[in-house]
Design a protein around this nucleic acid. Structure first.
Lengths: 379, 379
DNA sequence: GGACTAAGTTCAAGCATTGAACGAATGAGG
DNA sequence: CCTCATTCGTTCAATGCTTGAACTTAGTCC
């Protein structure tokens, strides 16, 4: 720690507070001072370099009352942006996100990834990113994969085993000349519900079924990843100790009863769309399949909630599509199995984000870091 | 924030760092400067008021080499101390703990609490505390109860329902004229393995069976309590969705298979001691009972580890007593059911703390807060 | 006894925030 | 049109923390 490092930390902390307030909504220096608890003097001082760096812009004065009109500050529309990318079994996706939380562009392209080498996949991802972010200054990239990630490397990916072991973050970083952060799709889908806008509170679990079942756990406003990235493996919560054998080696895992493949098979359908149509048409077999899955998922979620004590469950991915037909069974199991103290409720909601939740989270990883480590904005 | 509050925060933060270093072990100003990264000048400055307040003492110079001999600083043996108390179904306990982590006294008295009113119980606790802390300056008290705590109130206590709803922390505080912190015995037993000494790393679960089964979860060096204090309810993790009905309303909870009462019943024994003797003597029925419990507990723990991703499980309470006969079954279930990536291991150890883990944790709550909020030491 | 070494203290310098005073820009009222 | 009230934004001296270098102290080594 050099002489002034401590003071510098204070400044960076205040800068973070100001940026967080601006993510919430634009505001004049005086308004931001009131909202952050800092003084007007400090706000002038802190925002000056951000304006100079082109991160913020000053809007023309708005004279909507007495006194000198304020000049609201907001993120510069041509300022630096973040890009998120998603690698999945059957598609690639990219999204560009501004610091203000606005989506600038999003694209999803079908792609059969299975069998491709990591380098082939990364080439396509890099191309896709370059294609859709031309000209903008990039803060960095977030990359989502369907697997467990630790230290920038995929350590488990039952559905895309080719990716295991390769330093994807570093390799994509080389291709793009950017910092790249790699994370699990479940964690990123959860992050998308937390940043840049709180869509489900500060404590919740986001559950989705795409290939396996993944839960992204948000505790105290932070995605919880565990000591080695394996946290939130809801798919391998045991609900029947002597139940069906799972690919993971255990028995009776939730995934064997509530995985999307199981639901489709039991319902006698090939695709999620076809299943959804059948449900809307009142097909009994489809309803039975979904109800059974909901019950299994509800048992697993009840266990999760008794361990994590989070009040809210967000259904995402395929579960969000099915939620009208799925929620009752889940809720019923949770109601009887989650410990309740007094007025405690468990809330079950469907994600308002569509199929772009994961990429949005990937991009959010980057904008969030930029705000939390504001020194990066001046680089 | 007033003018100098930011600077004061820096100072308090440094004070905390220094105190943490001293909890680790005593040291001279120069040594502490090296360990904390602060300068000798700052260390002189920070420790001066602590010496003046009688929190620290300066030992006589130790001339063990060249140069001016150092005068090690350590916590004053007559300085302020913390007291912990435990209310349980069949006993009360108190422990006095110094800031240096040394136990000054500990007492456990059998007591049948069931049926007593909260005020009666608190009277006895207060008397016990006064009796065993005479003359020492107290930093505060920690109080452990076998139940879920939220905001200083017990909100669930299946085994001591009388305590539910009463503001125990405030009431004991009035009696003693001290700040009192209330917490769950499972959380406090876990804390005792974390503070003042790390006995099991920064991430672990402490599991104990006294009446129910409680898990204290430590994530990133902090006890995780959840949004409303219900976190870590391992006893109500479901291992058989259609299993035995539990008092909580659910079915197939771990507690119905691995609770101490179940083990004793299945083993045909009345007390833990008698069970232990039978196990040592090679009694087959006792071994079967313990093995079955271990299997059930192992399934629940595997689920917990797949959700929290902590590397270590500490067996405490009755489980610690039985661990030689219990561990194999638990470990076997965990080995097949916990997801593993590469070199990941799950470590299962017995708590080195005896029956005083809970009170020690209760007292630790107070010394820990004193170190983390050093301004309290000057009050 | 003198040189050497390391511990602890003193002190001017540096720096982010603050609050008060000040300047700027507008609306209200006569 | 002019003045006053009002609010926004800037300037500036003061504050109090850590720092590093210089200094003092208290021992060992030869």
């Amino acid at each position: 720690m050099s002489t002034v490092d401590h003071l510098r930390q204070v400044r960076l902390g205040n800068l973070r507070t100001v940026l967080l307030a601006l993510v919430d909504r634009p505001g004049s220096r005086a308004d931001l001072a009131a909202r952050t608890g800092l003084t007007k003097a400090t706000l002038s001082n802190l925002t000056e370099p951000l304006l100079a760096a082109g991160v913020l812009v000053e809007d023309p004065a708005t004279g909507a009352g007495m006194g000198r009109p304020s000049k609201p500050l907001r993120f510069h529309p041509d300022g630096p942006v973040a890009v998120g990318a998603e690698i999945n079994v059957s598609h690639l996706a990219v999204e560009t996100l501004g610091l203000d939380g606005e989506t600038l562009s999003r694209h999803l392209v079908p792609a059969d990834i299975r069998g491709s080498s990591p380098d082939e996949v990364l080439d396509r991802v890099a191309e896709l990113i370059r294609e859709h972010t031309g000209g903008r200054k990039l803060l960095g990239a977030g990359l989502a994969v369907p697997g467990v990630v630790h230290d920038g490397v995929v350590v488990r990916a039952p559905n895309l085993p080719e990716l295991v072991g390769a330093p994807l973050a570093a390799r994509l970083g080389e291709r793009l000349g950017l910092d790249v952060e790699l994370d699990n799709e479940a964690n990123l889908a959860a992050l998308a519900h937390l940043w840049p806008k709180h869509l489900a509170g500060e404590d919740f679990v986001h559950v989705s079924a795409d290939v396996g079942i993944g839960a992204g756990v948000v505790l105290n406003g932070e995605v919880y990843r565990g000591a080695s990235g394996f946290a939130g493996e809801l798919g391998h919560v045991v609900i029947e100790r002597d139940g069906e054998l799972c690919t993971c080696g255990s028995k009776g895992c939730v995934e064997r009863y509530a995985g999307l493949d199981v639901i489709l098979r039991e319902a006698g359908r090939r695709t999620l769309d076809s299943l959804h149509e059948a449900l809307e048409a009142g097909d009994a077999r489809a309803h039975r399949a979904v109800t059974q899955a909901g019950q299994a998922l509800g048992v697993g979620l009840a266990t999760l909630m008794n361990l994590f004590d989070v009040p809210t469950v967000v259904l995402g991915g395929s579960y969000a599509v099915l939620h009208e037909h799925l929620s009752a069974a889940i809720q019923s199991e949770m109601d009887t199995r989650v410990l309740a103290g007094g007025e405690r409720h468990t809330t079950l909601v469907a994600s308002p984000l569509g199929e772009f939740a994961v990429v949005r989270g990937a991009a959010g990883l980057v904008t969030r870091r930029a705000v939390q480590q504001p020194e990066r904005l001046f680089a």
